[in-house]
Simulated scan of single mutants.
Amino acid sequence: MIDLFRKNRAFFLTYLVALVGVGILQLIYTKEELIRWVNSYNAPWADVFFDNATYLGDGAFSFIIIAILFIRSKWMGILASGSFAISGLLSIFLKRVVFPHNLRPLKYFEHSDWEYHVLKGLDIHSYNSFPSGHTITAFAVFSLLAMLDERKGRGWALALLAILVGYSRVYLFQHFVEDVYAGSIVGTLSTLLVFYYFNLWRERRRLKERTESMGDL
């Protein structure tokens, strides 16, 4: 496991800096103050940008990644399918079973006199806010791509893409910061564990096949 972190340090160090930084902000400020701050920095170009960037955390995007990985390698496709299936099931379980009544920002501030910024025509949900499903998917996808990528130096860019999706969920008034924070942890850990144990299983299988082939000589 340590070797896995070392090989992918560009991704994990970038993510760790963001995790610690946002964690400190949550200790200093309330979730209401944080979303007010994010919501106050809006612009027409940002509305368009984040409205499209958030789809990198959509389930359809993860299916596209699975299809591409299957084309490249059968084991990569199987690994991606397992990783995204587990992260998706965790998302559903946490949102609908453990935290079913957590309010989304729009419902939370329903009776507030705060004039918040929302995109016109955007479908914003009211419940199942914690954790952010899009963020879980984004971190599951991009952490997996970072670990599969032979060019480890660009792992930081993949981490930033995942972080971008998380920020988009707050910008679009779909989630609080705490929702995307938890989502990033769930997505990353689920992929990390699946990747580690899947490769451990493959290595043991190879060793067993090698031993059996030597025994037949």
Rank of each mutant, 00 (worst) to 15 (best):
F109D: 03
F63G: 06
D3L: 13
R206Y: 14
W75Q: 14
V194Q: 06
L90T: 01
A85T: 13
L13A: 12
W201G: 03
F50E: 08
K7W: 01
L200R: 15
L34K: 11
R204M: 10
S62F: 06
L90E: 09
A67D: 06
S126D: 13
H101S: 15
S87K: 03
R36C: 07
F61Y: 14
N102F: 14
H175P: 12
S126E: 14
G77H: 06
F198T: 03
A138E: 02
L16M: 14
F5A: 05
A46H: 01
K208H: 13
T30K: 08
K208S: 12
G133W: 06
I92T: 13
H117W: 11
W45V: 11
A138D: 04
E178F: 06
W75Y: 14
L122V: 06
A80F: 08
F93S: 11
D123G: 02
Y41E: 06
G57W: 02
S83G: 14
V177E: 03
N8S: 07
D3N: 14
T30D: 05
H117F: 12
N199R: 04
S213G: 04
I124H: 07
S126K: 13
M76P: 01
R9S: 13
L192K: 00
Q26S: 08
H134L: 12
S126V: 07
T191I: 05
R151M: 09
N42D: 07
H101Q: 14
G166W: 00
K95V: 05
R154W: 13
Y171P: 02
A18R: 00
M147K: 03
R204E: 15
E209N: 09
R104E: 06
T135D: 03
L158H: 02
I71A: 13
F63R: 04
M1K: 08
P44D: 08
L34W: 08
I24Q: 04
R6P: 01
R72K: 14
L16K: 05
I71D: 01
N102T: 15
R151W: 11
I24C: 09
F173S: 01
D123K: 13
S112D: 12
A182K: 05
L89G: 11
W75P: 00
R104I: 04
A146P: 02
V38L: 03
R6F: 08
G155E: 03
Y116T: 03
Y108C: 09
F198R: 01
F11D: 02
M1C: 10
L89S: 10
S132G: 10
L207D: 12
W156P: 00
G77R: 02
S112M: 12
